[in-house]
Amino acid sequence: MKKYLFFILFFYLLSLLETSFFIHFRIFSFLPSLILISQVLIVFLEHPNKNYAVFSAFCAGFFWDIFSNQKLGTGILLMISLTVLLKLILKKYVRIPSIRKF
């Protein structure tokens, strides 16, 4: 339960930071998506047999949709699709034992 709460708060704050704080630090008018980077990192750090990353993908997509102009659900769909794809690749083809923390 704590992990779910952590993901909700984490992506909420990250969305706020990305839309209000980091927006001032654009590099050549480009700002990398911290939400996307964070979600990819979570997927890589999570054990392949656990599925917390799917929930975090939902949170990431949801807050991404909320604080952007896109339709509600678009971000969620993209994040979950990406997470499932990455998890499948990691589970079947990649082994990185040293960075598995979750």
């Binding site: 706020l16 209000s20 980091f22 927006i23």
Partner: peptide
Amino acid sequence: PIQCVFNEAGD
């Protein structure tokens, strides 16, 4: 309110 604070700080 939080966004205002972050915005000012970022600026």
